[in-house]
Simulated scan of single mutants.
Amino acid sequence: MAMMMRKAAAVPASSRRSVAVQSVSGKRTVSGKAPVPEDVLAYAKTLPGVTAPFDNVFDPAGFLATASVKDVRRWRESEVTHGRVAMLAALGFIVGEQLQDFPLFFNFDGRVSGPAIYHFQQIGQGFWEPLLIAIGVAESYRVAIGWATPAGTGFNSLKDDYEPGDLGFDPLGLKPTDAEELKTMQTKELNNGRLAMIAIAAFVAQELVEQTEIFEHLVLRFEKEAILELDDIERDLGLPLTPLPDNLKAI
């Protein structure tokens, strides 16, 4: 016993505090972070989207410390919705840039061209009005399905019987009936949405910096790598090097 006490005393107090897990007034303090309400932590652990290598709740900014279950449900609704929009946006970026010269593509008499970040500015009247109406109808439907009446405690909160992201839209009948299979599918959707949010941000940043389309940049990158590989071979054989075109030097 004395040996164990001496070993415990040899561990720095800061190290002991860093691994402490305490329960105080219904809250849990983990690894020195601010206390998280136990009901919030328990609910967060049941949600889809918990993925390796983050096998526990991933909250580096400590948002859960000041959150309620109602807040977490609203955040999940926001994450799912933004992920779905980002998946459509990422696909739209690529498809729009590739089909702008396709004869059957609605291209406003050929006025839309170049990187996708400039397509909006090239579209005239007759497109935005129906689009805004369609967005309004879709959002009104989502609010009617999932959001509580904005009065009293229902302000800025979801309905108690609403599952975040579940709008009842399943025209192909793909929704699993098994709870575990459904959670797996929801996790896949969340992860693809998270990747799409990062991707669409990268698409916009890349096109703003380089002023080239996504696939055009990819082709130019491959062309540059091929020329550099060819230069290595020519250098080894003592042959003249293939010059790198000016438009590839900045890539």
Rank of each mutant, 00 (worst) to 15 (best):
E139I: 13
V80C: 05
E225R: 14
P48V: 02
A179C: 00
L172I: 13
P150D: 04
A250W: 05
E163A: 15
E180G: 06
S23C: 02
G173L: 04
M1R: 08
V36H: 05
L182E: 14
I200P: 00
R6N: 04
V204R: 10
S68W: 11
A2R: 11
L190E: 05
G96T: 03
V80E: 11
I123W: 07
L132S: 09
E229D: 13
W128F: 13
F54M: 07
G92N: 07
G173W: 07
D39N: 12
G168W: 13
L172Q: 13
D101N: 14
L241Q: 08
V85I: 14
G124H: 08
K183N: 10
V30S: 06
K45Y: 07
L99P: 04
Q100W: 11
A116M: 04
A67R: 05
A8K: 10
E139H: 14
V137L: 15
R16Q: 15
T187C: 03
A44K: 08
I123L: 13
E163V: 15
G114R: 06
Q206P: 00
F215I: 09
Q22E: 12
V112W: 03
L88Y: 00
A205D: 04
L220D: 12
E97M: 06
G32L: 01
E229W: 07
A8F: 14
L172Y: 15
E129D: 13
Q206S: 13
F120W: 11
H217E: 02
P150N: 02
E181P: 02
F127L: 08
L158C: 04
P115V: 01
E180S: 14
P35F: 09
F203K: 00
M3N: 09
S140D: 12
V204W: 10
S23H: 10
D178Q: 06
L64C: 01
Q125K: 12
F120G: 12
A20V: 00
L88K: 00
E129N: 10
P164E: 01
G152K: 07
P243R: 06
D39V: 02
F169W: 13
I233Y: 14
Q121R: 09
A144R: 10
A138K: 14
E97L: 05
G96D: 03
F120M: 12
V112T: 06
W128P: 00
K175M: 11
S15G: 00
V21Y: 01
D39I: 03
V72T: 11
L167K: 10
G193C: 09
Q125F: 04
D246V: 10
V21H: 07
G154H: 08
L172T: 13
E180L: 10
L220K: 15
P176I: 05
W75Q: 10
S78L: 14
A202L: 06
Q22W: 00
P48K: 05
A138H: 14
L88A: 08
L190R: 10
R235H: 12
A226Q: 15
T51I: 07
K175V: 11
V40K: 03
A201P: 00
G154Q: 06
H217I: 00
S25P: 00
R6C: 00
D161M: 03
Q125P: 09
L41G: 02
I233C: 07
A42K: 13
S113K: 14
L230K: 15
A86C: 02
